[in-house]
Simulated assay, not measured.
Amino acid sequence: MSLKDQLSEQQKNAMRAKDKARLGTLRMLMAEIKQKEIDSRETLDDDGIIAVITKMVKQRKDAAGQFEQAGRQDLADNERQEIVVLQEFLPQPLTEAELDALLTQAIADTGAAGMQDMGKVMAVLKPQIQGRADMGKVSAIIKARLA
């Protein structure tokens, strides 16, 4: 079953259960996927959908942080609830050991010797870790290794 089918099925289940918060988040996600498909004029595969979900999770984390700084804990809590629903559809996060092994392999495969090769390493890693690790943290680790 494709990820899009799973999302659709979960949306139906949320309707049946009258779970308004979950239903709203799933509808928002499906709308974002549909918009991305319309913009690119192609149907998204599971990897494309994971990229959309990852982007939405990042947006929600940023928004929650801003709401907390503004003293709006109620809005921050709503964002965190949406994050929980969205993360259900992301693959299992990588452990530190798995991430370290992938980084070592990518650096070896590209023959990266310095910071100028960081783009090559990221290009190799991104498809493997999309949605499974924070790309900002991965980027910092790569910078530390190549420096």
Rank of each mutant, 00 (worst) to 15 (best):
L26Y: 12
L26F: 14
M28K: 15
M28E: 15
M28H: 10
L29I: 02
M30I: 13
A31S: 14
A31L: 06
E32F: 01
E32S: 13
E32D: 14
I33V: 14
I33S: 01
I33F: 09
I33N: 03
K34G: 01
K34E: 15
Q35K: 15
K36G: 02
K36I: 07
E37I: 04
E37G: 07
I38C: 01
I38G: 07
I38Y: 05
I38H: 07
D39M: 09
S40H: 09
S40K: 11
R41M: 12
R41V: 05
R41H: 11
L44R: 04
L44V: 03
L44G: 08
L44I: 03
D45I: 02
D45V: 08
D45A: 10
D46L: 05
D46A: 13
D47W: 03
D47N: 13
D47C: 01
D47Y: 05
G48L: 04
G48D: 06
G48A: 07
I50N: 00
I50R: 10
I50P: 01
A51S: 13
V52K: 05
V52E: 12
I53A: 07
T54C: 07
K55S: 13
K55N: 12
K55Q: 15
K55P: 00
M56T: 01
M56N: 06
M56R: 10
V57E: 09
V57R: 07
